[in-house]
Nucleic acid binder design. Structure first.
Lengths: 211, 211
DNA sequence: GGCAAACCATACGCATAAGTATGGTCTCTG
DNA sequence: CAGAGACCATACTTATGCGTATGGTTTGCC
């Protein structure tokens, strides 16, 4: 049903062909709405919601505002389009991918590992969390939280937890996840290296997933 | 151990005498720098860092900008003063208070309970976390994170954890804490009622603190 | 090759919020 | 009770960033 590497957003891995001098001005002919959305996701992941500004984006795309307002009526529209794209492309695929695993404990372990594998792929989510007071992103992260929480809760329930205990453990796991994102991306806490990080993930799994 | 009153910042509980019509304009004579700092902490807790604006603050204090710029050279100065006040008043007291408990497991449990007792008292910290990209608050939350993480790590180590395991468990506990703040204050996730919340805290303690 | 439509540049308007300049009023103290 | 310093109001200036108006250039297509 799905193809392999779709888990990781193209924008985050720079899969998009880096044809001309990508650093700044890259005058690759005309632009489409999609180009703007991808660029928006890039700066969203790198610098947060507030950094998604039309004049700034236009500069990095080698054009001016005039271009932008042909493709989008407003900045909000771009933000919404970009977030929608991200949400459907990444979010839905993580869910559907993990949901297929029958054994609940294995499903949980896989979920934790997936989340940990490519931290980069969660920069957008971290940025959205950070800007959750924004009227546009608030419903998004609320929706995503509900969905992921439900996934976790069900897995724990299937793994033998009492309904309430499953709910609590799911909440614990999910808050640990988003707290980790918040404290590691772009600030705070001493950054971990690769093996320390792997060891940490193992510890989390050992602690939060029943043997 | 119900000394909890000191835990909760005065600003959050409105301990300050509510002499005249506090809702809006409250013309209580002249103002001091401290008044501005307390008011700043109020809106900081209620509406985040961005909401700490001088004209807005002036309105709620019943004065104009002219007053503000007599007490402070800049908005940043106010923010720094307010955060400093909060950090020293609240943060130091939680630490020093909990550090006195000799038994490590009891110390951990007390820490979790303290944190959970008055969610209100952590609105400021949640607001700071949210604005951690701000150049002023970034070092603050970094400093606080290090301190709290060290406290947790030491407690786990004393409780018999291997050094690395203690570090990991501490990180897990701390990220769960800040993730919880992030997802509950002012957005996201369905709000919990009182008893569900208490049950959740118990679950967290049972899961993260060794028996 | 010429005309629409798609795409873009330039030059504005406008709102917000910080910060400045200047002069007023209160209050304490000698 | 008078003057000095503390406190505040009013009226600016300035910077940023969204959005608009208008016209220019490119591209697909007959």
């Amino acid at each position: 049903m799905e193809t392999g590497a779709l888990l990781i957003p193209a924008t985050l891995l720079q899969t998009r062909p880096m044809n001309e001098a990508e650093s700044k001005q890259e005058p690759r002919g005309r632009l489409s709405a999609t180009d703007w959305e991808l660029a928006a996701l890039d700066v969203l992941a790198a610098n947060g919601v507030a950094a998604v500004a039309v004049e700034s984006l236009a500069r990095t795309l080698g054009v001016t505002k005039g271009s932008f307002y042909w493709h989008f009526p407003t900045r909000e529209a771009l933000l919404k389009a970009a977030i929608d794209r991200w949400e459907q492309r990444d979010e839905d695929q993580v869910i559907s991918r993990v949901e297929r695993i029958a054994e609940p404990r294995e499903r949980l372990r896989e979920l934790f590992h997936r989340v940990s594998r490519e931290v980069q792929s969660h920069l957008v989510y971290a940025a959205l969390l950070q800007a959750s007071d924004n009227a546009l992103v608030q419903p998004v992260i609320e929706r995503i939280s509900k969905r992921r929480l439900a996934l976790l809760t069900e897995a724990y329930a299937e793994a033998g937890f009492e309904p309430l205990a499953a709910k609590h453990r799911a909440r614990l796991a999910y808050t640990a996840y988003s707290g980790f994102l918040q404290l590691n991306q772009r600030h705070g806490m001493p950054r971990m290296d690769q093996e320390e990080y792997a060891a940490y993930v193992d510890h989390v799994i050992a602690t939060l997933v029943p043997a």
